[in-house]
């Protein structure tokens, strides 16, 4: 079969994603006593985020435009602009309280459930405004799936969990539901483990299985974008590995925006990475660039564990 000598297996880090523009960035001179972005942010001074040219096109499936969010008087997201490329995995990283989860929940307006939330700026999903007054939030949430930090299957059967999204949108045909159920469970790498007990309660599954079930439930309605809020933080390393493999698999079909605390995870699963600090975007670019040759020394410090 192999006519040429086989190459060694590709490592999960997507080295091939390095942009030719990287060299230009690398050659940028770094002045010795320089403006420190993080202290500027701490002192509430303006700063310019380092946006890699490859993601500065403004043509993403999700376009976050000068978006700010307030919990009552407290501003937790400060004028963030981000362009999430279609068909890729984008990771949001940053220390606790940097607003990455809040930003994620702003994309499907789940923050609406919280009292006293106010926003400025806008987010576009597939070109449609999320915060315009006439937005159909129900339809938006159908187009933007979400997987939560802690797996949250409904206390019903595995089958009913997976097809919940279809049912609430009016699908009743048994054949369609069964087909989607199988396709989604296969898509979430769970089919083989549960195919003989689709009618038993989802609460009996292990933590990792429950999280994969939640992923199956989210992809059953074929969203344009899948949001993941630290999907592995409650899982053991083996279950985490499975979810990470699954994210890589899913990214063939879906755009994924994932919040993670785990640097290794961000480097393994994502194509692009955005580093946030205290509600501001600090640096955004291809993951290989952020992890190997970040533009800002602050980003490098965070990634190598010097703070945060």
């Amino acid at each position: 079969m192999n006519e040429t000598p086989s190459k060694p297996a590709m490592s999960p880090v997507k080295v091939e994603a390095i942009d030719p523009l990287d060299s230009a960035v690398l050659d940028m001179p770094r002045q010795a006593p320089r403006f420190n972005v993080l202290s500027a942010i701490q002192n509430d001074q303006p700063h310019a985020p380092a946006i890699h040219p490859s993601v500065a096109h403004g043509k993403g499936i999700v376009e976050i435009k000068d978006f700010s969010l307030y919990y009552g008087p407290k501003k937790t997201v400060h004028s963030v602009s981000l362009s999430i490329p279609v068909g890729h995995v984008t990771a949001l990283i940053g220390p606790s309280g940097c607003g990455k989860s809040t930003l994620l929940r702003s994309v499907n307006r789940l923050n609406d459930l919280v009292d006293g939330v106010r926003t400025t700026g806008d987010i576009l999903v597939g070109g449609e405004s999320v915060y315009a007054p006439g937005t159909d939030v129900i339809d938006l949430r159908r187009r933007v799936g979400m997987v939560f930090q802690k797996s949250n299957p409904f206390p019903m059967s595995i089958f009913d969990n997976v097809v919940y999204g279809l049912r609430i949108h009016g699908e009743r045909r048994r054949s369609v539901l069964e087909e989607v159920c199988e396709r989604s469970l296969r898509g979430a790498a769970l089919w083989d483990e549960v195919k003989d007990r689709l009618q038993s309660s989802a609460m009996g599954l292990s933590g990792g299985q429950q999280q994969r079930l939640c992923i199956a439930r989210a992809i059953a309605v074929e969203p344009q974008v899948l949001l993941m809020d630290e999907p592995c933080s409650a899982l053991d390393p083996i279950a985490t590995l499975k979810i990470e493999e699954l994210i890589l698999e899913i990214s063939q079909k879906y755009t994924v925006l994932i919040v993670t605390h785990n640097m290794g995870q961000a480097s393994r699963v994502s194509d692009y990475t955005a580093f946030m600090y205290l509600g501001r975007l600090v640096e955004y670019g291809p993951t290989s660039h952020i992890f190997q040759t970040p533009t800002l020394p602050e980003t490098e410090q965070y990634i190598t564990g010097k703070f945060g």
Binding site: N108, L110, L113, I138, D139, L140, R141, R142, R143, G145, M146, F148, K150, N152, P153, F154, P155, Y164, G165, R167, I168, H169, C214, R217, A218, V221
Partner: peptide, 19 residues
């Protein structure tokens, strides 16, 4: 978390409550 999961799938409030 049940309510959030249901709403995030595009369910209405009434669907979330009844289902």
């Amino acid at each position: 978390s049940y309510r959030a999961a249901s709403l995030a799938l595009g369910a209405t409030k009434a669907q979330t409550i009844t289902r």
